[in-house]
């Protein structure tokens, strides 16, 4: 599927590690302002794809263009600057365990914004409240929070610098059904609220049910190739044997 002015465009991207080809001539656009999910079995190349989008690793051949910028044209320093366009929610939230909840959210603001300390504190509290956290949790350490609460804090931290692209790495894996629903609602709500800012959402997952509920587009990655990429309603009816098998799971 091709889109006009996509947020992310992978053009003939191949990545090999020694003899092993992880991404195989990938051509793939991710539209702006939509929720796109990349599904696939373990080892399909999802994480490698994510690292290419972030510019953490370079493709062996091909181009990765994000927000109109070819990542290959950026040096290491510029790439780091450019990465501030991304927000990312990790599978286990990846909160800094030596910092409290509010310090975690304030961290990117302290590092990159020119806000005063009181403005940072105010914005951090606002972000935490927006993701549904109560003030009594603001000064708790990550180890004192539940899995769902950690995800909320991780999301608040990821949104702190108003990113243009929000990446979710296996956001619902290993969560109970209630927390899964909460995280899904949060993803949709975040995408809706930030639509005006042009927020593009990319989810890497193998959780089919959660994905189909919230995505606009779904791509299926298998052995380094996108074998199916459709709007969610069409994806549900896909005749591709692998997709059909995956949807049955």
């Amino acid at each position: 599927m091709k889109f006009e002015n996509p947020a992310i465009s992978l053009q003939n991207v191949t990545k090999t590690f020694g003899e092993h080809t992880v991404l195989n001539n990938l051509n793939f656009d991710i539209p702006k302002n939509k929720i796109t999910t990349i599904l696939g079995f373990s080892g399909a190349g999802k994480s490698t794809l994510l690292k290419h989008i972030l510019g953490v690793i370079k493709p062996t051949s091909g181009k990765v263009i994000v927000l109109g910028q070819d990542l290959a044209e950026l040096d290491e320093y510029q790439k780091r600057e450019f990465r501030r366009n991304f927000g990312m929610l990790f599978q286990y939230a990846a909160l800094f365990d030596s910092m409290t909840t509010i310090e975690n959210v304030a961290f990117p603001l302290k590092e990159f914004s020119k806000l005063t300390l009181s403005e940072i504190s105010e914005k951090s509290q606002h972000l935490l409240t927006a993701v549904g956290l109560k003030s009594e949790s603001f000064n708790k350490l990550p180890s004192e929070l539940s899995g769902g609460m950690r995800k909320r804090v991780g999301l608040a931290r990821a949104l702190a610098l108003s990113p243009h692209i929000m990446l979710y790495d296996e956001p619902t894996t290993g969560l109970d059904p209630i927390t899964t629903k909460m995280v899904n609602d949060l993803i949709v709500e975040t995408a809706e609220v930030n639509k005006e800012n042009g927020l593009t959402t990319v989810i890497i997952s193998h959780d089919v049910r959660a994905t189909l509920e919230i995505s606009d587009y779904v791509a299926f990655l298998d052995r380094g190739r996108i074998v199916e990429y459709l709007p969610v309603d069409q994806f549900k009816k896909s005749e591709h044997p692998l997709v059909k098998e995956f949807l049955r799971l």
Binding site: V56, R83, Q91, A94, L95, E111
Partner: peptide
């Protein structure tokens, strides 16, 4: 920090 992806989180932030 590495095994809990905190190092990755720093890198993603551009640090």
């Amino acid at each position: 920090m590495k095994v809990t992806e905190q190092v990755d989180a720093l890198e993603v932030m551009g640090i």
